[in-house]
């Protein structure tokens, strides 16, 4: 319990710094959140008896929601209840989209499926499935920043656009991506 509390405090501190534009803190925050979200997604999906094959998609959808709605977190509170609120909402959304046909509780299944490393490899094909549905401009910027790991400035230089335009395009691309995740499956 103390462990959870201290990690909640640490995550909250990172997110407060991120709100003021600290990218390093934000990367720490998201990276630390990743295993937590994977576990949450796997557990909820398997508990509902749904397929866990694309649980990494769900994790990404939750991350996008956290990113695009981070202004709704009240900084005077710790962040994990807020994160779980977002995750819970998205899980319900995902299960609703898939229909309730598979909602057979499978007790004890969690132990078998909790192999998060495999999940990431599985979702590699999604580069085509999801990014392919972005417009040309948005896809180029998102790819340059995510897959090639360029900074906004370098990505802008490479694509021959201004830094401001690259910034706006990236943000729109992420918003579109969130919408695509929300409508797929």
């Amino acid at each position: 319990m103390d462990d959870f509390k201290s990690s909640d405090e640490r995550l909250s501190a990172w997110m407060r710094a991120a709100s003021r534009g600290d990218q390093e803190a934000y990367r720490n925050f998201l990276s630390a959140l990743l295993p937590v979200l994977r576990q949450t997604a796997l557990r909820s999906l398997s508990r509902a008896g749904a397929s866990v094959a694309d649980s990494e998609d769900v994790v990404q959808e939750i991350m996008l929601a956290i990113h695009l709605r981070r202004h709704t977190w009240d900084e005077s509170t710790t962040i994990m209840p807020w994160v779980y609120g977002i995750a819970r909402h998205k899980m319900i959304d995902v299960l609703r989209r898939r229909g309730r046909r598979f909602e057979v509780p499978l007790d004890g299944f969690e132990e078998i499926v909790e192999a998060p490393a495999a999940a990431e490899a599985l979702s590699e094909r999604d580069i085509i499935r999801f990014l392919g549905r972005l417009g040309n401009g948005q896809r180029k910027v998102v790819l340059a920043v995510s897959v090639e790991g360029l900074s906004i400035r370098d990505a802008a230089k490479r694509l021959g656009i201004t830094e401001g335009a690259a910034r706006v395009t990236l943000h729109r691309g992420l918003k579109t991506l969130a919408r695509i995740y929300g409508s797929e499956r």
Partner: peptide, 22 residues
Amino acid sequence: MQTHRLIEALVADLQPLRQRLP
């Protein structure tokens, strides 16, 4: 898309929050 790549995109998109919800 691999998730650590998505994280890079999100980090690049980070802007200081100009206005919070309230």
